[in-house]
Simulated scan of single mutants.
Amino acid sequence: MNQDFTLLFEEEVSNLLLQKWDPFFRDNVIKEAKRLTPTPELRRMLQAAESPGSELDEAPTYDQEMSALLLLLYLLPPSPGGPRYRRNMGQ
């Protein structure tokens, strides 16, 4: 996500994304994500967002802040028109 912001807004501006990310937003994202239909990936992201990672974890996890940002992907609605719409726009 940070890489995409860097490509769009240059490094100086993109670094502000995580600096300005307030714990208030993280808590609200987690709260809203808990309302979604649970999937294994969503459960892993919620767990990572709610508690700090451990060195003993079997698989690498994201830190709390990044996990909460990734939860936004589950909360954002799909683009209007879906993939078909985007393909036709380029023609």
Rank of each mutant, 00 (worst) to 15 (best):
P77W: 01
S54Q: 05
K31F: 02
L7C: 02
G53F: 00
N28L: 01
M66H: 05
L18T: 00
R44L: 04
E41W: 03
L46R: 03
L17A: 11
F24M: 14
L7F: 03
A48M: 11
N88P: 02
L70W: 05
I30E: 12
L71Y: 00
M66D: 10
P60H: 11
Q64S: 04
E10K: 15
L36G: 09
L56N: 15
K20E: 06
Q3M: 00
R35I: 07
L73R: 14
K34T: 05
P40R: 13
L69A: 03
V13I: 12
L7T: 01
L56W: 13
F5Q: 08
A68C: 08
T6R: 15
R87L: 01
L73A: 14
Q91F: 02
Q19N: 14
Y74K: 10
R43V: 08
L7H: 08
G90T: 05
L76N: 02
E50H: 09
P60K: 13
T39D: 00
S14H: 03
F25I: 06
E11T: 01
L17T: 04
L7K: 04
L18M: 07
M89R: 13
P52V: 03
L46W: 02
N15I: 01
S67I: 00
E10C: 12
Q64T: 04
D27K: 10
T6L: 09
E55S: 12
L16K: 06
S14Y: 04
R44K: 10
F9N: 04
L42I: 12
L75Y: 14
L76R: 01
G53S: 14
L72Q: 05
F5M: 06
Q3L: 02
M1T: 09
Y85F: 12
Y62D: 00
Q64C: 04
N88W: 02
L7M: 06
T6V: 12
A68M: 07
K20I: 00
L7Y: 04
N2M: 02
D63L: 10
A48Q: 12
F5N: 05
T39V: 00
Q19A: 10
P77S: 11
L56F: 15
Y74D: 03
